[in-house]
């Protein structure tokens, strides 16, 4: 246990400080190369550096190597390869506008290392009722899981600081759940995801200095999904992602198809004169979590909407921890 605690402290510190130190250099390099996008929600429409994925993947790989030096496990290698592949999928989407189907399919392919290295257990655990053995079907679960977690985090990356702040909360809940279920080595890797996201949040929070882009959001989401599979906490991980899953669910049920946000002309939210966010009444616009938060109420600032999303994520996180505790109870 002592070794796990030492590893947790060193890995967390490595994850946090690598992203904390690398990101300012990345911001400067991106600004120098004019790799910036307009922040439409900001007064004056500031130009913000994008993508922040390279600093996130650097932090994940550095801290992952440190963890591997403590525990040379194939599970760590599989998670790092899957996460790196997801980063490259995102990077392609950052550089070139791809169709709505590109990301789900390409992300599904990033699950291959987990399958090839065989670092999964085909038993799917549920709270109160126990496990169900689904040897062949579980392969589909692995493939779908990475695609879903990657895309849901990407879809919630709509406001300053939301994707990284959301991941800090969700991954913290996942880490606590893994500790409850005594999967300590994977919990340490999950902790590195918490600290990588936390360091990035410092630059991503309102007013953002950098946006994660697809490469950043897919990296965080895919790593989260890979940890869930390898740590055998798929259901718990899905519960912790509640607000992001609702966002994707609302979006898909209103659009009735898989489509990129940029392809939709009708806007779900609009800006007031004093730069507050307000839900539109456009029937053709997608229904999203942000639109739902703003609907029927007074306009809110971007920061206020972000904090509502964080409160919802904390609620989901608590439910996921309760789910982990319920795993030990059998009816």
């Amino acid at each position: 246990m002592e070794q796990q605690i030492i590893a947790a402290i060193i890995v967390s510190a490595t994850a946090f400080f690598s992203v904390f130190v690398i990101t300012p250099f990345l911001i400067k390099a991106l600004e120098k190369r004019n790799s910036t996008v307009k922040d439409y929600h900001r007064k004056g429409g500031a130009m913000i550096a994008r993508p922040g994925g390279p600093s996130l993947i650097a932090g994940i790989i550095i801290s992952g190597i440190v963890l591997y030096s403590f525990f040379p496990m194939m599970e760590i290698i599989a998670i790092l390869i899957t996460t790196s592949l997801a980063f490259f999928v995102g990077l392609v989407d950052d550089k070139k506008i791809m169709s709505g189907w590109f990301k789900p399919i390409a992300l599904a392919a990033t699950a291959i290392p987990i399958l090839v290295l065989g670092v999964y257990d085909s038993d799917l655990s549920f709270p109160l009722f126990g496990e169900v053995k689904i040897p062949l079907l579980y392969i589909a679960v692995v493939v779908i899981m990475i695609s879903i977690t990657g895309n849901t985090i990407n879809s919630i990356d709509v406001l300053n600081g939301v994707a990284s702040g959301f991941m800090v909360i969700a991954a913290t809940a996942l880490t606590i759940s893994l500790i409850i279920l005594q999967k300590y080595e994977i919990a340490v890797l999950s902790l590195s995801l918490v600290f990588v996201s936390l360091a990035f949040y410092k630059y991503h929070k309102f007013p953002s200095k950098i946006f994660p882009g697809d490469s950043g959001a897919l990296t965080l989401g895919a790593m989260y999904g890979a940890i869930a599979i390898v740590g055998q906490v798929e259901v718990i991980a899905a519960v912790a992602l509640g607000p992001a899953i609702i966002n994707s669910f609302l979006f898909l049920s209103s659009m009735k198809r898989i489509v990129e946000h940029r392809e939709i002309k009708a806007k779900p939210i609009t800006l007031t004169e004093d730069f507050m966010l307000k839900a539109t009444s456009d029937k053709d616009a997608s229904v999203t979590l942000v639109r739902l938060i703003l609907a029927g109420g007074k306009p809110l600032s971007e920061k206020e909407v972000g904090f509502v999303i964080f409160r919802l994520t904390i609620f989901s996180g608590v439910l996921s921890i309760i789910t982990a505790l319920m795993m030990g109870i059998s009816l």
């Binding site: 799917l124 549920f126 709270p127 109160l128 009722f129 126990g130 496990e131 169900v132 259901v235 899905a238 519960v239 509640g242 607000p243 899953i245 609702i246 979590l289 739902l292 938060i293 919802l312 609620f315 989901s316 439910l319 789910t323 319920m326």
Partner: peptide
């Protein structure tokens, strides 16, 4: 939305039960 998240959680647990049984 909190109620919706809670309803989703209950559905996951019930779904799990049906899957196992």
């Amino acid at each position: 939305i909190f109620i919706f998240i809670f309803a989703m959680w209950i559905l996951i647990i019930i779904g799990g039960g049906i899957a196992v049984l």
